[in-house]
Amino acid sequence: MVIEDPKTNKLIEVEKLPDGTYKVTIYDKKTGEKKTITMSKKDLEKLLKAL
């Protein structure tokens, strides 16, 4: 799943891993910076609600 946040000009890509956690990659379209973090479903839901 890919989500675009027009306010921050970032793309957020979410991928479910076999162990039940989620790999979240955040791309900054302005700088080209890429950050990848792994989080639980509960933390991911908090992140998505904040957008």
Rank of each mutant, 00 (worst) to 15 (best):
residue 40 S to V: 07
residue 43 D to W: 09
residue 17 L to Q: 09
residue 11 L to F: 04
residue 1 M to F: 02
residue 21 T to G: 04
residue 28 D to Y: 04
residue 2 V to E: 15
residue 18 P to W: 08
residue 6 P to V: 10
residue 49 K to G: 09
residue 35 K to V: 14
residue 33 E to Q: 06
residue 13 E to C: 11
residue 24 V to N: 00
residue 16 K to N: 11
residue 39 M to W: 02
residue 5 D to M: 06
residue 42 K to T: 09
residue 23 K to E: 03
residue 37 I to W: 14
residue 18 P to E: 11
residue 14 V to R: 01
residue 43 D to F: 05
residue 39 M to F: 06
residue 13 E to D: 04
residue 31 T to P: 09
residue 40 S to H: 06
residue 20 G to E: 09
residue 5 D to C: 11
residue 42 K to Q: 14
residue 29 K to S: 05
residue 19 D to C: 08
residue 50 A to D: 12
residue 37 I to M: 15
residue 48 L to G: 00
residue 14 V to Y: 09
residue 43 D to P: 01
residue 23 K to G: 04
residue 38 T to P: 09
residue 31 T to W: 06
residue 4 E to H: 03
residue 15 E to N: 12
residue 3 I to D: 15
residue 24 V to D: 00
residue 40 S to M: 05
residue 25 T to E: 02
residue 45 E to L: 10
residue 4 E to R: 00
residue 32 G to Q: 08
residue 21 T to R: 07
residue 22 Y to E: 00
residue 1 M to Y: 00
residue 33 E to W: 13
residue 27 Y to V: 02
residue 36 T to L: 09
residue 14 V to L: 06
residue 14 V to M: 12
residue 8 T to V: 04
residue 33 E to H: 10
residue 22 Y to S: 03
residue 50 A to H: 13
residue 39 M to R: 00
residue 37 I to Q: 09
residue 38 T to A: 05
residue 44 L to R: 00
residue 18 P to I: 14
residue 41 K to Y: 12
residue 40 S to Y: 14
residue 25 T to G: 04
residue 19 D to G: 06
residue 9 N to M: 11
residue 22 Y to C: 02
residue 23 K to F: 07
residue 4 E to S: 03
residue 34 K to S: 09
residue 19 D to F: 08
residue 2 V to L: 04
residue 38 T to I: 06
residue 30 K to R: 11
residue 17 L to K: 05
residue 36 T to N: 06
residue 36 T to M: 10
residue 6 P to H: 08
residue 48 L to N: 01
residue 9 N to E: 05
residue 11 L to R: 12
residue 49 K to E: 07
residue 35 K to C: 05
residue 5 D to N: 00
residue 36 T to G: 08
residue 16 K to Y: 11
residue 13 E to R: 11
residue 9 N to H: 07
residue 24 V to K: 00
residue 41 K to I: 14
residue 16 K to M: 15
residue 1 M to K: 04
residue 3 I to G: 06
residue 6 P to S: 07
residue 10 K to V: 13
residue 47 L to D: 00
residue 21 T to K: 04
residue 45 E to G: 05
residue 46 K to F: 14
residue 20 G to P: 00
residue 23 K to C: 05
residue 41 K to N: 12
residue 33 E to S: 07
residue 29 K to A: 07
residue 21 T to A: 09
residue 9 N to G: 10
residue 49 K to H: 11
residue 11 L to I: 10
residue 41 K to L: 15
residue 43 D to T: 05
residue 16 K to A: 13
residue 33 E to T: 10
residue 1 M to R: 03
residue 38 T to L: 15
residue 22 Y to M: 03
residue 13 E to A: 08
residue 34 K to L: 07
residue 40 S to K: 07
residue 33 E to I: 07
residue 23 K to M: 05
residue 15 E to V: 08
residue 35 K to G: 11
residue 29 K to L: 15
residue 51 L to S: 03
residue 50 A to E: 10
residue 24 V to Q: 00
residue 28 D to W: 10
residue 28 D to N: 04
residue 18 P to G: 12
residue 27 Y to Q: 02
residue 31 T to Q: 06
residue 38 T to Q: 06
residue 29 K to D: 02
residue 51 L to T: 07
residue 49 K to I: 12
residue 42 K to C: 12
residue 46 K to A: 14
residue 1 M to E: 14
residue 26 I to K: 05
residue 39 M to T: 02
residue 24 V to A: 08
residue 36 T to Q: 10
residue 43 D to L: 06
residue 36 T to E: 05
residue 17 L to G: 06
residue 34 K to G: 10
residue 50 A to V: 08
residue 45 E to N: 08
residue 38 T to V: 08
residue 4 E to T: 03
residue 25 T to C: 07
residue 24 V to S: 00
residue 44 L to V: 13
residue 51 L to F: 04
residue 42 K to I: 11
residue 7 K to C: 13
residue 27 Y to M: 07
residue 14 V to E: 00
residue 23 K to I: 03
residue 41 K to D: 08
residue 19 D to K: 06
residue 48 L to P: 00
residue 13 E to T: 14
residue 44 L to S: 01
residue 26 I to Q: 09
residue 45 E to H: 14
residue 31 T to K: 09
residue 18 P to C: 10
residue 29 K to I: 11
residue 51 L to A: 08
residue 13 E to I: 15
residue 17 L to H: 07
residue 19 D to H: 08
residue 4 E to I: 04
residue 25 T to L: 11
residue 37 I to T: 14
residue 2 V to Y: 00
residue 49 K to S: 13
residue 33 E to R: 06
residue 47 L to M: 13
residue 17 L to Y: 10
residue 42 K to H: 11
residue 26 I to G: 02
residue 47 L to Y: 08
residue 35 K to Q: 15
residue 8 T to Q: 04
residue 43 D to C: 10
residue 51 L to V: 07
residue 43 D to V: 09
residue 36 T to W: 12
residue 19 D to P: 05
residue 21 T to V: 07
residue 49 K to V: 10
residue 31 T to I: 06
residue 45 E to F: 14
residue 13 E to Y: 15
residue 9 N to Q: 07
residue 6 P to I: 09
residue 10 K to F: 15
residue 50 A to W: 12
residue 26 I to V: 13
residue 29 K to F: 07
residue 37 I to G: 08
residue 9 N to F: 06
residue 33 E to V: 07
residue 24 V to T: 03
residue 36 T to V: 14
residue 24 V to P: 00
residue 26 I to T: 09
residue 11 L to P: 01
residue 51 L to E: 03
residue 51 L to W: 01
residue 37 I to H: 12
residue 3 I to H: 03
residue 39 M to E: 00
residue 23 K to T: 04
residue 27 Y to I: 04
residue 24 V to R: 00
residue 42 K to G: 14
residue 47 L to T: 02
residue 44 L to W: 11
residue 27 Y to C: 01
residue 8 T to Y: 06
residue 20 G to K: 05
residue 12 I to C: 01
residue 42 K to P: 12
residue 7 K to P: 12
residue 33 E to Y: 11
residue 17 L to N: 10
residue 5 D to P: 01
residue 47 L to N: 00
residue 9 N to S: 05
residue 5 D to L: 06
residue 5 D to I: 04
residue 2 V to D: 10
